[in-house]
Simulated scan of single mutants.
Amino acid sequence: MLGHSALITVLLGLLQIVSEVQSAQDNVQCGSFDEDNLLKQTRFAYPTEQQWLARITFTKGFEGKIRENGCLGVLISKRTVLAPAYCFVQYNGMAEGFSVHLGVYNKSTPINEPSCDPDGFCVRPAQEIKLAEVAIHPEYDSLTLKNSLAVLTLQREAKLNANVMPICMPPPHLVNQTLVAQTFIVAGLRTAEDLRLKVWVNTHSRSFCQSKVSSLVTSSTTVCGYQNMPERFYMGAPLVGMQVKNHATQNFYLVGLMIDWRWHDNRIMSSFLAIRNYLDFIYQNSDSLIVRS
């Protein structure tokens, strides 16, 4: 099923050890970082990577009328998920958000069932949690997608484990630093493949992106750049950066949410809503967010 049985076998065999060292995981509050996993670039991301990914579902089914038939968000606390407002309010009406799925590794695996390969190694079941409230940014424009941000409140807390963990919020000393000419990571579920994947994103200036792809949705509150692999993600895929302290990387933190992508010269250029511009709105509609200083 996965086409990488040997690697998956090693990976998922290691996951069996996770429960034995769960006390160590409990000490990680957000943005879990593993240097061994950082540079591994395969056709999928490990189940214990980018554990903050959330899949959005709707009352009329998962696909709805969202571009490329899917929408993603990012877990920022046990009861809060960020997602593009576009997923819920479009120019032609409202999309009725229903729930989020956390810990999804294989998008074809039914919810609440383990994701297993032919050799019998399994990833623990994803969690489904219904939505209690959706707060849309008051200045969201459904025509231009400007300020496309929604804060989702869950009906109950997520159960944190090796596969489900919040992302850290941007640390104060990085909030005002440039997002241009940086290297970040975006991870998500893909339109053409089942397994979750991570890719690198090299960011550019807004003017550069518009000169290459004029149709790409950008604004003064976005950051854009080329992906190192031509993979098409569902909208809302989180862009994350790495926070360094004492010459060592200590965690990932949230940079943005994918709101658009376009092909250019056999590459994909993506645009992300920069979260740092919306911290006041997020904090007003959230609780227990984690910032690592």
Rank of each mutant, 00 (worst) to 15 (best):
V255E: 12
A248T: 13
R190E: 03
A162F: 09
A150C: 12
N228Y: 06
T222M: 07
T222I: 04
V240Q: 10
V217E: 13
T191Y: 06
N202Y: 15
T191C: 08
P166H: 05
D194G: 00
F184D: 11
T222C: 04
K198Y: 01
T183V: 14
R232A: 13
R196M: 03
L189W: 02
T221C: 02
G236T: 01
S207A: 12
G236R: 01
T183A: 09
C209T: 03
Y226H: 14
L152I: 07
S207D: 15
V186Y: 00
R232W: 11
T153A: 08
T153C: 02
V217K: 13
S215P: 13
F252K: 02
T222D: 06
E231Y: 04
A150K: 07
G188N: 01
P230G: 12
M169K: 07
S215V: 07
G236Y: 00
F208H: 07
L149T: 04
K198F: 01
G236H: 03
L197R: 03
Y234H: 10
Q227Y: 03
C209N: 05
L179G: 01
E231K: 03
F208C: 03
M165D: 13
N202M: 14
A237F: 00
S220Q: 14
R156F: 02
A192F: 11
S215E: 15
I185H: 04
Q243N: 09
L179E: 06
T191R: 10
P171D: 08
Q177H: 09
A237R: 03
T178Q: 15
N163R: 11
A248G: 08
F252S: 05
N246T: 10
R156D: 12
K159I: 07
Y234F: 05
W200Y: 14
S148N: 11
T183L: 10
Y226P: 00
A181S: 14
L239Q: 05
K159P: 08
T183M: 13
H204Y: 13
V240K: 09
Y234M: 09
G241I: 04
K245Y: 13
M165Y: 02
L216F: 11
F233I: 01
L189Y: 06
P171W: 08
S211G: 09
G256I: 07
V164Q: 06
L179T: 09
S148Q: 02
V151I: 12
G225F: 04
L149G: 04
R196D: 00
A162H: 06
M169I: 10
F184N: 08
L195Y: 04
V213R: 12
K212W: 10
T249R: 14
L179Q: 08
T153W: 02
S220G: 15
S205W: 00
Q155V: 09
I185W: 03
M229Q: 15
A248Y: 13
V151S: 05
N251Y: 14
T183I: 11
T203F: 03
R196L: 05
F184P: 02
Q243K: 14
L152D: 02
V213K: 04
Q243A: 11
W200D: 11
